[in-house]
Structures are given as structure tokens and as C-alpha cells.
Write a protein that binds this DNA or RNA. Structure first.
Length: 270
DNA sequence: CCCTCGCCCTGCTGGC
DNA sequence: TGCCAGCAGGGCGAGG
């Protein structure tokens, strides 16, 4: 499913076909995804010129010369299809551009979202207001995590999924980063040593950067905007590998945490 | 504030 | 072959 590297890859792919172009047509083929589409979505975007694309946490931002920014979240199964040919039943939003291209936001499980946010107040948008630092930015440090984890009894795994602590980490890359840093996912946040946090921060960055370089991971339904599959999934060391061998020689285990699966190695993750 | 849990949604998988 | 329960899980709201 799309996590930060997949959103980053998507944003880069969309930038190639959207930047500098004018949106000539917007068709919402249903009224909502997880939330209603803005009622004036088509009106607000038709005729707008795309000035650039960026990413914040797991959100993609399409900036235009209008006063609102289109913000999308891919949820669990969202993907943009470029020049899809035939429009399918899960292509919920279709955009045509001035140079004759068509983009379709496809989202079978409809956990995604599309919003229009006042560009001058992007940071105040509710979904953005409380976000923690970007994991690939300067704000993520061992000190930041130590402060955020202090006196917390919740498992380190769950704290890393809290977007207010770090913005953009999801289940896959938290599992991978904890394995690389040799930290047990069930360890109490407040009891993770400073030395462990100092190992963790560069491993978070490394696994995300490697996944971006690989073009994004794939489970079964992630496709890059240009239709190519991401190739990082084969490089997962623990995620989805219950019963297989960890690089240290131990066995990968699966435990439920917060209603979802954590994968880890009890031999090297303490 | 902290923590847990359930809901949203559909497609795929495994068991019978 | 078909049916159905279980699973995938980010974000968000409710409740303890």
C-alpha cells in the first residue's frame, strides 16, 4: 500500500505530466472517497495551471495558480493512472490536461481522499496542523524521538506510527526500520535507550530513501503513475515474511499490535 | 493527555 | 467449483 516512498514516487511521476500544464477537465465519477469530494472540485480546478507538486507526510499536493491547493491521500489502494485508456469502475476522479493527457485517480478500497485547501493556510489545515517532522527532514533526530517517547508506555512501534511524532511512517517501513535498528517493536517507548534511537533515525532515513530509489514498494495493488511496478518489496527483510529467516539468522515472527501486524526477529531485536 | 478499539472499504486468499 | 471468513490498515472518532 502507498506509504511515504510510494507517495513520493507518485508525486514525482505526476509532476512529469502535470507541471506547467493547464487542467482542462475534471470529472468526479462519484461524490466521495473516504470523505466527500469538495462540491466545487471541478469548478475550482478547471482552467487552473499546475505550478508544481510536493509531498507532506503521506499526502500529495498539487499546487496551481488558483488560491487553493489540491491535496490527495492514496489511502490503502489509491494510485494515479496516466493515460489509462479505458476508465474503470474504480477510477473515481479523471483529469484531462492541456496537452491531451488523462489522469485517473483509482482507489478500489476508497480509503483515499481529495481536498482543496486554502494555499495561504496549508499549515493550518486540520490534517497538517499536528503533524510531526518529516522523517527525511532535519526535524527527525534522536533527541526529538527521546522527547516524544519520554514516559510513554505505549510500544515503540505504535509511537512511530503516530503521525504527530513522525509524519509519514506506515506499518511496512516502521517494521523494516526497527529490524535494521535491532529494536523490539513491543518495547515501551519510554524505555528505548538513547543509543537505540541514535541507531533508529538513520535506519528510518535509509529504508525510506532506498525505497524511493527503488521506485516504491508494492503489495498487490500499487502501481507507479507510469504503470510500472515498484521493486522494493523484494528487499523487505521482515514485513510479510513470517516464518522466514531474518538476515541475522533468526526467524521472523508476526504479532498483532494495535489491530495490525508487526513483523520482527526476536533474536536480533531486543 | 494517554490509550484502546472499532469503523470505513473491496479484493484476494485459504479452508472446507 | 463455490462459498465465506479473515485479512490488508491509515485516519479518525468514541469511550475508558
Amino acid at each position: 500500500m502507498p506509504e511515504l516512498p510510494e507517495v513520493e514516487t507518485t508525486v514525482r511521476g505526476l509532476a512529469r505530466v502535470l507541471e506547467g500544464r493547464t487542467i482542462t477537465r475534471v470529472e468526479a465519477r462519484r461524490a466521495d472517497l473516504r470523505r466527500p469530494f469538495p462540491v466545487d472540485l471541478a469548478q475550482a480546478l478547471t482552467g487552473a495551471r499546475v505550478t508544481g507538486l510536493t509531498r507532506r507526510a503521506k499526502y500529495g499536493l498539487i499546487h496551481t495558480d488558483r488560491d487553493r491547493t489540491m491535496v490527495f491521500h492514496l489511502g490503502m489502494s489509491g494510485r494515479w493512472r496516466i493515460d489509462p485508456g479505458e476508465i474503470g469502475k474504480h477510477d473515481h476522479l479523471v483529469i484531462d490536461t492541456s496537452d491531451g493527457q488523462t489522469l485517473a485517480l483509482n482507489d478500489a478500497r476508497r480509503f483515499g481522499s481529495v481536498d482543496l485547501v486554502d494555499t495561504a493556510r496549508l499549515d493550518e489545515w486540520p490534517a497538517f496542523a499536528a503533524l510531526g517532522p518529516e522523517p527525511l527532514g532535519e526535524g527527525l533526530t534522536a533527541n526529538h524521538l527521546a522527547d516524544a517517547f519520554a514516559n510513554r508506555i505505549a510500544a515503540v512501534k505504535l509511537l512511530l506510527l503516530d503521525q504527530r511524532i513522525v509524519a509519514g511512517l506506515g506499518n511496512i517501513y516502521v517494521c523494516e526500520a526497527l529490524n535494521r535498528a535491532k529494536i523490539h517493536p513491543e518495547r515501551e517507548g519510554g524505555k528505548v535507550t538513547k543509543a537505540s534511537l541514535a541507531r533508529l533515525v538513520p535506519e528510518i532515513r535509509a529504508v525510506l530513501e532506498e525505497a524511493i530509489l527503488a521506485g516504491g514498494s508494492t503489495l498487490r495493488d500499487y502501481v507507479r503513475p507510469d504503470g510500472e511496478l515498484g521493486y522494493f518489496a523484494k528487499d523487505w527483510r521482515v514485513y510479510g515474511r513470517e516464518g522466514e529467516v531474518c538476515p541475522c539468522g533468526g526467524t521472523v515472527l508476526r504479532v498483532p499490535q494495535g489491530g495490525r501486524s508487526s513483523f520482527f526477529c526476536a533474536k536480533c531485536q531486543k
